[in-house]
């Protein structure tokens, strides 16, 4: 696959910002739906690039994992992690 483009990253960030009033964390599958022509593994590369850019962060319950914008939601502030 070609390198991750800024445009692909923007699709994810725009999606998260658009939903930020209702939800701050999303399952991987929610992002796959944004790129209907791409395989899940290719979508993962975009998310990984955004995590490495520190735009996104993981949230994990221990058994499952979700993605969200860094610092979004109540948890970061409440737990002193922002």
């Amino acid at each position: 696959m070609a390198d991750v483009t800024d445009q692909q990253k923007a699709v994810i960030v725009d999606f998260l910002k658009g939903k930020s009033a209702a939800k701050s964390k999303f399952y991987f599958n929610d992002f796959v739906a944004l790129f209907p022509d791409m395989k899940p593994r290719e979508v993962k590369k975009i998310l990984t690039a955004l995590v490495n850019d520190q735009v996104l962060e993981f949230w994990s319950s221990g058994s499952t994992t979700m993605y969200g914008l860094k610092g979004a939601g109540k948890q970061s502030h409440a737990e002193g992690e922002d």
Binding site: F58, W59, S60, S61, E79, E81
Partner: peptide, 20 residues
């Protein structure tokens, strides 16, 4: 215990489970 957390080491999405 609260449910889950955002902590981890840089670049890894597993291996650390936030417990508060």
């Amino acid at each position: 215990w609260k449910h889950g957390g955002i902590v981890g080491v840089f670049g890894y999405g597993g291996g650390v489970i936030g417990r508060y």
